[in-house]
Simulated assay, not measured.
Amino acid sequence: MNSNFKKDINDGLSSPIKTLSSKYFYDTAGDALFVKIMNLPEYYLTKAEFDIFKNQTQNIIKSLNIEPDTFFELVELGAGDGTKTKELLKVLISENYNFKYLPVDISNNALDKLKANLNTELPTLKVSKKQGDYFDVLDSLKASNHPKVVLFLGSNIGNMEDEQAKLFISKLSNSLNISDNVLLGVDLIKSKDIVLPAYNDKSGVTKAFNLNLLNRINNELDADFNIDAFSHQPEYTEKEGIARSFIVSNKEQEVRIGALDKVFKFKKDEKIHTEISRKYNDTILNTILENSQLKKVTKLLDSKSYFADYILIKS
């Protein structure tokens, strides 16, 4: 049993305002559901960033200022299934760049699938996978003095509150050497009619993805959540620029978690906060970067200007 999982579930459900961390969405079932989400018509984020990686690959490489004959490490935090990154990897390989790819993910299952897939599609690629939490893995980056390019795509930084994002960027900056680069993907602030459906699709996949976290607690911590007694509720306002997801209790109820030997009480309509997805503009990003040594080099937009990939350099 994952002791961190057990502790975090206990802490989150014991709080006056209940929370469950989105990083625990990703078990085997959660991984599969998120792949489905990325292919939903409503979920524009993956398509928009893929647009950038597919059609502006040379712009990315030029902005990163890397040389074919200088070895570097390409580190991807939260690699997932690597769909977008493969567009970059293919070009780097075809143009004989000297590098190693280090995908990082909290899900061992996702990493194993990605490595197997890469071994088939890109057999000459040097891959070294790393399983763990972003913050833990950042510490290990310091052990290598090779030049680095760090990919943090999919607006994963948007899953952090602003203060946490500042801390993350500061720690990332401190883990890198001068002239190392970061490619940071962020979702841009847009109207509610575009953003909210991405977290509330008509087919109910996102709902299943969120509620699967309760299944995971049932399976791994011997709990008795009745999934049908909870609903999925996303919220978003353009003014705030943050999409929030909640699991909501449909009735007054009690849930026992055997591994904790505790019973948790839920009021009718009580919310469990599971996820935020911060949307960005230049002003917000500048605030996030202000206490780091990372500086903006360029900004690449998809064809609809829904999404941005910023190239940052440590200086």
Rank of each mutant, 00 (worst) to 15 (best):
Leu211Asn: 04
Leu111Asp: 01
Gly78Cys: 08
Ser292Cys: 09
Tyr236Pro: 06
Leu138Ala: 02
Thr237Ile: 08
Asn181Met: 15
Leu221Asn: 02
Ala259Met: 12
Gln58Pro: 00
Asn200Glu: 13
Asp309Leu: 02
Tyr134Lys: 01
Ile217Leu: 03
Glu252Arg: 13
Gly132Ser: 03
Gln164Asp: 13
Val35His: 01
Asp282Glu: 13
Gln58Tyr: 10
Arg256Thr: 10
Lys192Cys: 10
Gly204His: 08
Ala48His: 07
Ile60Ala: 04
Ile157Thr: 07
Asp261Val: 06
Lys18Ile: 01
Glu235Pro: 00
Leu196Arg: 02
Gly185Ser: 06
Gln293Lys: 15
Leu301Val: 10
Ser179Phe: 00
Ile189Val: 12
Phe25Asn: 08
Ser175Pro: 04
Asn156Arg: 09
Arg244Trp: 00
Ala229Ser: 06
Leu153Arg: 05
Asn200Ile: 08
Asn181Ile: 04
Asn96Thr: 09
Pro147Gly: 00
Phe72Gly: 05
Thr46Trp: 00
Ile61Phe: 11
Arg278Gln: 15
Ser144Asn: 13
Tyr101Ala: 06
Ser128Gln: 12
Glu49Ser: 05
Ser3Lys: 11
Ile217Phe: 11
Lys90Trp: 09
Thr237Asn: 14
Gly30Tyr: 08
Asn55Phe: 02
Asp224Ala: 11
Ser173His: 03
Arg216Glu: 06
Lys192Ser: 14
Phe264His: 10
Pro147Lys: 11
Lys296Thr: 15
Leu138Lys: 00
Glu163Pro: 00
Asn108Lys: 15
Lys7Leu: 14
Asp133Trp: 02
Val297Thr: 10
Ala308Cys: 10
Ser292Val: 08
Leu20Lys: 04
Pro103Arg: 09
Leu102Trp: 09
Ala116Val: 09
Glu235Val: 13
Gly158Ile: 01
Asp136Lys: 11
Ile17Ala: 02
Leu176Asp: 04
Leu118Asp: 09
Leu118Ser: 13
Glu67Ala: 07
Ala223Cys: 07
Leu88Glu: 10
Asn109Trp: 01
Asn215Arg: 12
His232Asp: 06
Lys207Leu: 09
Asn200Gln: 15
Ser315His: 11
Asn55Thr: 12
